[in-house]
Design a protein around this nucleic acid. Structure first.
Length: 344
RNA sequence: AGGGGCUUAGCUCAGCUGGUUAGAGCGGUGGUCUCCAAAACCACAGGUCGAGAGUUCGAAUCCCUCAGCCCCUGCCA
């Protein structure tokens, strides 16, 4: 396998309010990677329409995710921030990958099975083909590293399968076109730091989700400080005081979750947090948690509000990012056409 | 395309042969309780009954048209 220059790609779907899970699980990591990698961060609006979404909502959500990227500290000048639909090469390569991927591979995707549920006959073809578009998102930049959460790992593995099958099926043509042994890298997951799986504030066994019926289940990036405080105060706990040791969190999902959130926001380990709060009541711990949560989230929310006031500025950022993304994607797509045998 | 079935609260569904302010469970919101929560209890909110037209004193319920979805049988590629 030849080596490819390192490049990070990741995307966030503009499908609803961004919450703490999105921030700790993705955006915060995107920010950190800027220091060490060339990064491309994409608002994947084409993925958002695999499920019904009113156009006005989609438009607003794209701006919101963009604002969150910037507010959280992503630098759109040094790196690339854009929305997917502006770079047609994503769709173009996705079609090619639809023809590389096998039905059987996609049938195994647990996220599809979850989302489709018993309505599997009634969901869009796009939802089924989603992983092929995701593979195209990554590989149209020949990205080598993808920061993903646990839930996206299976999709990334599929991207690797697609890249490998493409390299394999067209090996002769790839070599003949002067690309050596492999045209696409096999993108690797970047799962760094403690696994920050943020759970619902109402049920420690469920992931924090934008679709939960109760807004008390999540901390939104747009929540003001009073809302953050109220949600934490109402968060589910249990009857015991906090343990002093990590082992004491076993079987206590809600306590574990709150400690995990505290640790992630304060930049400490869970053990350090327990060292400090072990033996204390929840009311005291929650008060401290409100402080760290407000310190971490309120500035981002405030900056987002500012940015959202000027949609022209946000669009300029997206347009500029799209133009620079296209410069990378277009030659890759041209090479793919040559490899496949398309006449141009 | 033809035949059959379905469409009632956020979700799952009741509403018999037309009759007063359309219900339940779950979920949601508020309250009591609790170190904060949970559980429990109390209260509240939310539906133009898929859309439109019609019969009738009166339609979720009957007739017609349309749409969406599901199943079966075909047709085209």
């Amino acid at each position: 396998m030849p080596s490819f220059p390192p490049r990070v790609f990741s995307g966030v779907q503009p499908t609803g309010n961004l919450h703490l899970g999105n921030y700790l699980g993705a955006i915060k990591k995107f920010v950190a990677l800027q220091a060490t990698h060339e990064c491309i961060y994409c608002v994947v609006d084409m993925h958002a329409i695999t499920v019904p979404l009113p156009p006005a909502d989609l438009r607003a959500n794209i701006r919101e995710v963009t604002a969150a990227f910037i507010a959280a500290g992503i630098d759109p000048k040094k790196h690339i921030v854009f929305n997917q639909s502006q770079v047609a090469e994503h769709a173009e390569l996705a079609w090619v990958f639809n023809c590389v991927a096998r039905m059987g591979w996609l049938n195994r995707m647990t996220q599809f099975k979850d989302k489709a549920g018993k309505n599997s006959e009634n969901v869009s073809v796009g939802l089924f083909a989603y992983p092929a578009l995701m593979a195209a998102d990554i590989l149209v930049y020949r990205a080598t590293h993808v920061p993903v959460g646990e839930d996206q790992k299976q999709h990334l593995e599929l991207s690797r399968d697609i890249a490998q099958k493409f390299n394999n099926d067209f090996a002769d043509s790839i070599a003949a076109c002067g690309h050596g042994e492999a045209f696409f890298p096999l993108p690797e997951p970047l799962i760094q730091g403690p696994a920050t799986r943020v759970m619902s504030l109402r049920d420690g066994s469920k992931k924090m989700s934008k679709s939960d019926a109760s807004d008390y289940s999540r901390l939104n990036l747009s929540d003001d400080r009073d809302t953050i405080a109220q949600k934490i105060r109402k968060a589910k706990t249990d009857a015991e005081p906090l343990p002093s040791e990590l082992a004491g969190l076993a079987g206590r999902p809600e306590a574990d979750n709150l400690v995990g959130i505290f640790a992630a926001l304060a930049g400490e380990s869970k053990a350090e947090v327990l060292n400090r709060f072990g033996g204390q009541n929840f009311s005291g711990f929650k008060a401290a948690l409100v402080d760290v949560a407000v310190d971490a989230l309120d500035p981002i929310g405030a900056e987002m509000k500012q940015l959202l006031k000027d949609s022209g500025h946000l669009e300029a950022i997206l347009n500029d990012g799209a133009a620079r993304a296209r410069e990378i994607a277009a030659p890759v797509m041209t090479a793919v056409k040559d490899i496949l045998g398309f006449v141009r």
